[in-house]
Design a protein around this nucleic acid. Structure first.
Ligand code: ZN
Ligand code: ZN
Ligand code: ZN
Ligand code: ZN
Lengths: 140, 140
DNA sequence: GACGTAATGTTATACAATAACATTATTGCG
DNA sequence: CGCAATAATGTTATTGTATAACATTACGTC
């Protein structure tokens, strides 16, 4: 039992540091900007951050946004552990305020799989990223 | 009227060179590997390639694959000019043979728009990339 | 304590993209 | 034609993103 309420995969020190920075950030962060925030904690090389990120992504605690070369803490409605880990997730990225919304629509995924099957394509990962303006930003 | 049967937006010399390389390639190519193939033709700097790519993507003749940092000539079933230019396209990228299949499913896009609308999100571009094994490669 | 495995630290390098500025074509118009 | 506006090009330097290679340290387990 952990005092910490976070779902916590027994993170190593570096993993915990990196995850902490991402959890505390509204916007997605690049590996290098994460590194900048961890210099005081003893991290010096990009590889230290990339290695931690790789694990965190494996655990499903963090997502990589391909169109930004950046990372966000998982913000899935049902939480990072709720079966989402290996499902397909879509991201809506606001280009004005950098907010990232995350969602998984089973029907949506079903249709995508349908097409893949018809083509004989066997997907092992799926990237869906919407770029645009979030509700708060598109009114103005 | 052009002798060339290609849909050809009156490409400039550099644009034509870059497009030619992409058309002749089975696999997606990075800007730098395109540059390598155009050294003999007088291109020397990455920027020359990036500038051409930017226009070609605008024209809808070329797509950028965000998850690969690479580019492919448009291979849409109905051709690059057939109204696809500003529609949403999905890519299925084979990680074994590097083949890229391209498709656009209106229903699929409709569902995505539905979610966006419900969230108040106004998308201006949509990225869908499936990574996995193509038909030819997943049997073996 | 010896071994295998995972995590870490460090340096150097490869790969991707853009900034800044000078130059040359191209186009449209008086 | 002469000239201005615009678009394309060439070049150098720099920034940003990611990994290779290797040495070291922690840790579980027998
Ligand atoms: Zn998530
Ligand atoms: Zn916003
Ligand atoms: Zn296309
Ligand atoms: Zn294949």
């Amino acid at each position: 039992m952990k005092a910490d309420t976070r779902a916590n995969h027994d993170l190593t020190r570096n993993q915990a540091l990196v995850f902490g920075v991402l959890e505390g950030s509204e916007a997605p962060l690049s590996a290098y900007s994460i590194l900048d925030q961890l210099r005081e904690d003893g991290l010096r090389a990009p590889l230290q951050v990339y290695r931690a990120l790789e694990k965190l992504v494996d655990f499903g605690l963090v997502h990589r946004l391909e169109s930004l070369n950046a990372f966000v803490a998982c913000n899935h409605p049902s939480g990072p552990e709720a079966g989402e880990s290996h499902g397909t997730v879509a991201f809506a990225i606001c280009e004005k305020c950098d907010n990232v919304a995350e969602f998984a629509d089973p029907d949506f995924v079903e249709r995508l799989r349908g097409w893949a099957k018809a083509e004989g394509f066997e997907p092992h990962s799926t990237i869906i990223e919407l770029r645009g303006l979030c509700e708060g930003c598109c009114v103005a």
